[in-house]
Amino acid sequence: MSNWEILWASRDVFWQGFGNTLTIFSISAVLSFLLGSLLLFSMEGVRPRLKIPLRIFIDAMRMLPFLILAYLFYYGLPSVGIRMTAWQAGVLALVLYHGAYFAEILRGSRITLSSGQEEAAIAQGFSRPTMFLRIILPQLVLRTRGVMGNQLIILLKDTAFLVIITVRELTAAANSLSSTYFIPMEAFIVVIGFYWMISLALEQGIRFLGRIGEKRGFNNA
């Protein structure tokens, strides 16, 4: 049996890893985008006291290697009585970490949005949350689609770190097959293929956003 045939025979392990990676990625992507939006909304909110702790949170996350955060949540927190499954710890770490980045990406674009658009919304009686959801956020997404896509790919790659906290995702699958049959080369090439596939699908999504943006004159994103 050639090495490739061995891998083909154990394809279920890959599929399981692929499914897990895709699930973790999708959940974390959606939640971290929501967290990023919520952070931005809260920071420009009516409570100035909230601004400083949120700012500190965002900077703290950005100045931290993701791996450490995953370690901390899974191995560190149990010692203070907080126990999570590997999945919970992994997704929470991804969401907090990348949520901070999303907040920062959105904020950068928020600053340059013309205040006139907001005034028009206020004059029309929009409440703050409705204005944020209907007028501001959609524009920020269209404007930052490129950077946003980049961040999603980084998020995807960070899911690979979860192998070290025992999540059975793609990299874990390759790891276990490579050590069981000692065929690291082939096993890792296969998972690279999987990561590329997901990334290419992401790029397609961003391109679709791009077409929506171009039709509306958002060309300089």
Binding site: A121, Q139, F218
Partner: peptide, 10 residues
């Protein structure tokens, strides 16, 4: 009605 229109571009 504003001088700079302030339509929502999206």
């Amino acid at each position: 009605v504003f001088q700079s229109f302030n339509l929502w571009p999206h």
